[in-house]
Design a protein around this nucleic acid. Structure first.
Lengths: 347, 347
DNA sequence: TTGAAAGCGCTAACAT
DNA sequence: ATGTTAGCGCTTTCAA
């Protein structure tokens, strides 16, 4: 033991930033026990001079604690998982930034997983979250996962974002989708449009809710309903809208239920040589950066993206502190941004 | 606060019932040794019937191996880190998707970290990568990190993407930035533009290289050089371009060195009431989805985004297999997509 | 305040 | 082919 200590010290003092130093190397160099090192680097009670010695030794060795060992021993991962349905959707990148900010403020790490609207990947990632023993997961469920989700199968609490399941199953932070869609439709009606088509994602509760709001608003005015459901990606929207526009009595206004579909709608209209709003008015969800740059700008419902992430994280932390609390669903409101794409209809 | 967090963990395990089954529980239920369980679930030599029994027991208990324990014991994380400079930049989300695809094909996980063009965050994440004991890191360095980077301070190999440091320091996959910028400038000259301004990111080698190509192409033709450098974000570009346009002899064409700056330029032009390309022609980098939707479309250099991620991952894997290989830099070529924003100048 | 020692859950030598 | 056992690097009792 004595010999060991001296030997280590000799070897290490030569090296300037020896890689792969372990806690016992630091202990040897600082001539303290490994327990003292652990306490000095964590927040245990250590005398000032020992703490100083330990920190110096750690710095000299370039010591970095092994997180696997730490997590195994302490049984805490201080990590939350974030499963987003599609990383290419700016809505989710914005949310993930705020989740990460909030997590770091709370001293937690984030594992960001891109489910890519793929149920298999989603299941795989949920399994991974268990294997990583995360404290909790913020989750935007794909397809009908939201309705089938069994939180009792997981050892961590889940906060759903953007898409929620049945009430009382998990916590959730969502937009008031029905209201938002109604606002959009009402706005189009006020601007003089009567044949209003709706393009919705076919793989989320969000799409369904927005479709419901769309229908309700139209039926309240006795106007015809024409909702179409497609995969939530640009290409699917392009084909759907192109086909639609080729029909004789196509809509004179369109709403798209997320940023990707909205983008597809714009492309389809452009490729069909139609003007916005001259031939077809257009409105949608998500105030993605580009929506202000197309034509006279696109009218959209802006979601409070940053708040959604922050609130989801807060909800998760409060759930961790108080697991027995009743499940909560937080409903936020979007803001209608009126732009040129829904200018008053010219007759 | 500290006690709170520890308390939280204890409560959780009780509250969520299902105390995670461990390998010894599976062993007990299957009436085999824990080593047999480990082998049966991994790929050790196990007889068919025991393997069957183990798998059944594991399924029955909902057993999930503890990755921290596995990694600690096996001394390998099978994880690569991916540090991107800005997750809001579609270039990086596209790259991250391909990195992830390639990683999973190789049986590895990815930790995606958003550095947010912040050197402090970057240093923090590099530290984290060490603590996670990742096998390697794919890294888009911020600011002048690329030139100062000391790979010998890290225990893992690094492949830089998008931005490379001095030759021979790390592996890298980059675009031929000089050539691409020259192509853009040459194209504008051919289309009749003579006062060509350049807007470049001030915090990356990429911006600098593209500026160099821009200057070279102009000087070769004896045309005036007017390069400006700004933070690589939309708002900075908007202010810079607005101020520029207010000057008496402002450019009649502009190139922007990435998708974010290009977006800012479009906004500035629109807000200044200027037409593209009538008042000012515009071209840039990155074929982001929206660039085809603005006006008559924006002329851009398209990067092989998916390939960049795939190649970076391949390079990392080959480096892991053969650490002593000489450092390699792979240079890819962009493709010029000509669109309406650089239509021939009208006199 | 400090140190010795017992594991966290798992894999891999080494036995059988 | 299967079981026994020794740790991986760390945190955290328990003593002193």
């Amino acid at each position: 033991m004595e010999a060991d200590k001296r030997g280590v010290q000799r070897d290490l003092s030569k090296e300037w930033g020896l890689m792969g130093a372990k806690i016992k190397d630091v202990a040897a160099l600082a001539r303290v026990s490994i327990a003292t090192v652990s306490r000095a680097l964590g927040n245990g009670p250590v005398s000032a001079d020992l703490k100083e010695r330990v920190e110096q030794a750690a710095a000299q060795l370039g010591y970095r604690p092994n997180l696997s060992a730490r997590r195994l021993r302490s049984q805490q991962s201080r990590t939350v998982g974030l499963l987003v349905s599609d990383i290419r959707n700016p809505f989710f990148t914005a949310v993930s930034r705020s989740v990460e900010d909030a997590a770091y403020r709370a001293g937690m790490r984030v594992i960001l997983c891109n489910v890519d609207e793929d149920v298999k990947k989603e299941a795989m990632y949920l399994r991974l979250m268990q294997e990583e023993r995360v404290c909790g997961v913020i989750f935007s469920p794909t397809g009908d996962t939201a309705s089938h989700f069994r939180p009792d199968r997981f050892e961590f609490p889940v906060v759903m974002i953007d898409r929620a399941g049945p009430p009382g199953v998990t916590d959730a932070v969502v937009l008031d989708n029905m209201l938002a869609a109604q606002q959009l439709v009402t706005h189009l009606i006020e601007r003089g449009y009567r044949r209003i088509g709706g393009l919705f994602g076919n793989s989320s509760t969000t799409g369904a809710e927005r479709a419901a709001g769309y229908e309700a608003a139209l039926m309240a005015q006795g106007l015809p309903v024409a909702a179409r459901f497609v995969s939530p990606n640009v290409d699917a929207a392009v084909s759907a809208v192109k086909a639609w526009l080729a029909e004789p009595d196509h809509p004179d206004a369109l709403i798209a239920s997320n940023g990707l579909l909205l983008q597809g709608a714009v492309r389809a209209l452009m490729e069909a040589g139609m003007s916005i709003p001259g031939d077809v008015a257009l409105a949608g969800f998500d105030n993605d950066a580009w929506t202000g740059l197309v034509g006279q700008g696109l009218t959209v419902i802006e979601q409070p993206v940053y708040d959604i992430g922050t609130l989801a994280m807060e909800m998760l932390l409060s759930r961790l502190e108080n697991p027995s609390l009743a499940k909560r669903k937080m409903v936020l409101n979007g803001v209608l941004l009126t732009r040129g794409s829904t200018a008053t209809k010219q007759v």
